[in-house]
Design a protein around this nucleic acid. Structure first.
Lengths: 340, 340
DNA sequence: ACTTGCCATGTTAACGATAACATAAGCAAA
DNA sequence: TTTGCTTATGTTATCGTTAACATGGCAAGT
């Protein structure tokens, strides 16, 4: 074979198999009508030539890319990774290819990503959260494809929503601690507006405390997201310094919750004897640490599964007759464990 | 505006701006020569029409997609997530778009992914590990694009490599424990061949033990990957049952290491007093738990950075005059901490 | 035998951008 | 003034596939 001849195309395959290029094209589709005999011949020819189907051309001509754009704040966050994982699983048989991007919790970066992704002509786009720049909203609204906002319940959704109220979820945990007779409860994290969901959780904490007639001023900063274990430990140290009488600490995530827990242990403070601790997210670690961590399971996987299913359904109908925007609620569950 | 008129193309923008489509095309490139005045006019027209550049067409005509295919075993693994994160950062200014896929530690799934990705005509492809199906190897070799195998040192590389020896890394840890006078050392995990790197770590454990003249039969299965905290705890329980005299346990990852640690704590076994524990991967948790976990830092981020840089360099030259395949070594470092 | 209709296949043109080449204008050097 | 070179722009054809339409053959229905 002459080396470095160009990459073979359908035309080459067609010639070798003695059919027209169109038939080759059909042979590479699932449902197209091609006789078994011809199909075999074509695949043999393709294999022999080392032909690899070119989606690039297919995408252009058919005006379908098979891309699903998905934007999450951070790859390195098990919750979002779970969501994306479940979405992938759900979409396994729908030949959609996920185009994954992450914003580092920055809506300007999100704007850049959305713009970049829309150039690839995805068939739908999934974003995390409901807070976006004006330009992002405009781009998404005009893209003419289904949009799904996840992990949140925006007041004014762009299109579809699969999410839950972060504020209400934390409210459940406050109720739980109060029911156990604790009143001096603090919150760690959620101080940076850029972490929209963390911010909402803190809001939910304050609201729930007030609803119980309790003061909600034991608030400790966790710093800019991602709030990790180390920051949680530091925050707990601050908490103990400023409010030594604190009876419970609710953390913006299990990671900071675990950090807070270890800080208590380093200081010989008993958990939950002296202080109760709550986290958020049902990360693996919350089920494995000692004591296990009371947390809120937001069902990250379910969000991904439901989003995948929704996208799949939406794309099944032609754009013309798609149902009205949906608002799918996921219901976070308080998981009471050893830490309080 | 007439609703649902088709998505505008460059032709529409060109007409509105009073120039030719070619000029519009140039105005959307960075380095093309277009007068400032014209460029402004064109961008204004594009904005007014809500025009969004169509990469799909551009890709076909220019035979460049700007895609970099990256395949990792699992999204939900902080090490690989770090690698991908660092790669993204490194490639920020190179307008390459990462096409991310994960195999769930299954080389058949890898084959499917490689095939799927190659259809998208990526400009380079990064895979994790050096073990692939025959067809995968063939596909990668014939793809005519740079290939990088990472996180491993394959004996017979397909093309470029950015990695390290998992076996040798674990050897360092064995040496460390032996130097501390421990001889009855066990290994947790790495029993499943599908987790190539885990398997290599176990091999490295056995080899290093033998090199010290010690028996290397204290091997506990961790089960199929991903080996998480829970499996580590179970494995430690098994270890203590079968070899109650064990002095140290080296775990295939920090996650199982942490699980092992908590299991000891649940049983009142002092770490490192009664048993030393070592992990792998320098996950956040290893620095935060109590006691902190001795581990091996494989520099996941550095792997990503170096890979990104390599790809960038390779793609800078035309295919014709690319340097010979490179083999970039990363040197894992033993991080001695509280657990032994 | 003659529609009717389906199935397998072929022909033609187009998806939307841009490579490659062409040209006009401007300006510096000779 | 002429030549040469750069800069800004236009023209034409094409990237590889497939939508849309066309066709021939063969089976079933009347």
């Amino acid at each position: 074979m002459t080396r470095s001849a160009k990459t073979p195309t359908m035309i080459d395959v067609a010639q070798r198999a003695g059919v027209s290029p169109m038939t080759v094209s059909r042979a590479f589709k699932r449902d197209a009508s091609v006789s078994d005999d011809t199909r075999r011949k074509i695949h043999a020819a393709a294999e022999a030539l080392g032909y690899v189907f070119d989606s690039t051309a297919s995408n252009l001509r058919s005006q379908k890319t098979g891309f699903l754009a998905v934007i999450i704040p951070s790859l390195n966050n098990a919750n979002f990774a779970d969501t994306v994982g479940a979405m992938t699983t759900q979409l396994r048989d729908s030949d959609l290819q996920i185009l994954l991007g992450y914003t580092d919790y920055d809506i300007e970066e999100e704007e850049r990503l959305v713009e970049q992704f829309l150039r690839r002509r995805p068939e739908a786009i999934v974003v995390t959260g409901g807070k976006h720049t004006g330009r992002t909203r405009r781009l998404l609204q005009n893209a003419g494809i289904p949009v799904v906002e996840t992990w949140d319940l925006p007041e004014d959704p762009i299109d579809n929503v699969v999410g839950f109220s972060n504020a209400a979820a934390v409210g459940q945990m406050v109720d739980h601690f109060v029911a156990r007779g604790l009143t001096r409860i603090g919150f760690i994290g959620g101080d940076e507006a850029s972490d929209t969901r963390g911010f909402d959780r803190r809001r939910g904490f304050v609201a729930a405390m007030r609803a119980h007639g309790l003061t909600a001023d034991r608030l400790i900063a966790g710093g800019p997201p991602p709030v990790m274990m180390r920051e949680g430990a530091q925050a707990m140290a601050d908490m103990l310094t400023r409010w030594p009488d604190v009876q419970a600490a609710i953390c913006v995530s299990d990671l900071s919750g675990f950090g807070a827990l270890t800080e208590c242990q380093r200081r010989g403070i008993a958990v939950p004897g002296d202080i109760s601790i709550g986290g958020f997210g049902a990360y693996d670690i919350s089920a494995q640490c000692l004591p296990t961590l009371t947390t809120i399971d937001a069902f990250s996987s379910e969000i991904g599964r439901a989003t995948g299913q929704l996208v799949d359904e939406l794309l099944r109908n032609p754009a013309r007759d798609r149902p009205a925007p949906q608002r799918i609620m996921v219901h976070p569950r308080l998981v009471v464990r050893g830490s309080g």
